[in-house]
């Protein structure tokens, strides 16, 4: 849109308003007709990555119904099925698997669907945690300024000077020290979420702080102050909705990063236990057999991880462009 004065729905003052009959389009139509939706419809990259991401997410969510076997159920596993190549008959059992099996005879397809489920769950939860932490810190730092800002942002700076995977490892290590060994298996996934979430809040805090500082000097915030609205209300009801745009962009890109972080941690062996393999765990297992010729154990989960992360990332990129105020 070239000229901001000309875009958007038409509005005229009293006189012309009477001349032009009011049409009230439905809510669905409004969404379909919005600039963001239009930008999506006209961007092939956005559509393709959206479809791919949606397909993987749906497949992961529906894993218990569409997966051929339940890889978490030890009773269904037959060690004799191990190392069956894709689309080939197993020499001992005669079973065929679309994407082959791993060392324990798990069907790769099922393991991947269940694995993607865990990866996505960890990724989404970690991003949500990072979002809540980051938005809170960013709002406070940006709105209060002064020492609150100084303290929060110095913490953020310090954390940013370490690689986030290192932070996650550190948190993971500390948590392991605290949690009794008997609960480590069950707690592993939650520790993973906290570790990734805590290592990722800085991005949100920074962007929210910047946007808050811009918004708080705008006249609508001053108007709310003149009315005597509580600072808490000003932050949540006035400022927060106006800083959510960039947060959504960061969150989408952050989701791709969190999924990769989970995979990295699991690959390093500090993630979810092999009994409940995520994509990262599957890759770690596969990597052990790569040089002995069982390539499929590594390749298929890796491709899936890559596709998912790439699709989500491209969506994030598109969202950033679509929400760019210059183009609205």
């Amino acid at each position: 849109m070239s000229d901001p004065k000309t875009s958007g729905p038409q509005a005229n003052e009293a006189v012309t308003e009477a001349a032009i009959p009011e049409r009230t389009p439905g809510r669905l139509f409004k969404i379909w007709d919005s600039d963001v939706a239009y930008s999506f419809r006209t961007s092939p990259v956005a559509i393709i990555s959206g479809v791919v991401a949606l397909a993987i997410i749906l497949a992961a969510l529906l894993a218990p119904w569409i997966a051929p076997t339940n890889p978490f159920d030890p009773a269904s596993l037959n060690l004799m099925d191990g190392f069956t190549p894709p689309m080939q008959e197993n020499a001992f059992t005669g079973n065929t698997f679309l994407l082959g099996t791993d060392n324990q005879g798990r069907d790769m397809l099922s393991a991947m669907l269940y694995g993607a489920r865990i990866s996505l769950f960890v990724g989404v939860s970690a991003v949500l945690l990072a979002m809540v932490l980051g938005i809170t810190a960013g709002l406070i730092a940006g709105y209060r300024g002064g020492w609150a800002d100084a303290v929060l942002m110095r913490i953020a700076d310090v954390q940013l000077s370490f690689p986030s995977i290192l932070i996650a490892l550190l948190i993971f290590g500390v948590a392991r020290g605290i949690i009794p060994p008997s609960q480590r298996e069950t707690m592993a996934i939650w520790v993973l979420i906290v570790a990734i979430g805590l290592s990722d809040w800085v991005q949100f805090a920074r962007i929210v702080r910047g946007a808050t500082m811009v918004e708080k000097s705008k006249e609508y915030v001053q108007a709310a102050k003149v009315i005597g609205a509580h600072p808490f209300k000003i932050l949540l009801r006035h400022i927060l909705p106006n800083v959510m745009g960039p947060v959504l962009v960061i969150a989408t890109i952050g989701l791709a990063l969190a999924i990769i972080a989970e995979a990295t941690l699991s690959f390093l062996g500090v993630g979810v236990p092999p009994t409940q393999p995520s994509l990262g765990t599957l890759i770690r297992i596969g990597q052990q057999y790569l040089f002995s010729g069982e390539w499929w154990i590594l390749l298929f989960p890796a491709v899936m991880l890559l596709t998912l992360a790439l699709a989500v990332n491209l969506l994030g990129d598109w969202l950033r462009d679509a929400l760019n105020p210059r183009l609205r």
Binding site: D3, T6, N12, A14, V15, T16
Partner: peptide, 20 residues
């Protein structure tokens, strides 16, 4: 003058000023 200048997507037919 009542009203305001029409937006570019809503210029009335005839004289652009006629509704006002």
């Amino acid at each position: 003058i009542p009203g305001s200048m029409p937006r570019l997507n809503a210029i009335p037919p005839g004289c652009a000023f006629n509704p006002r």
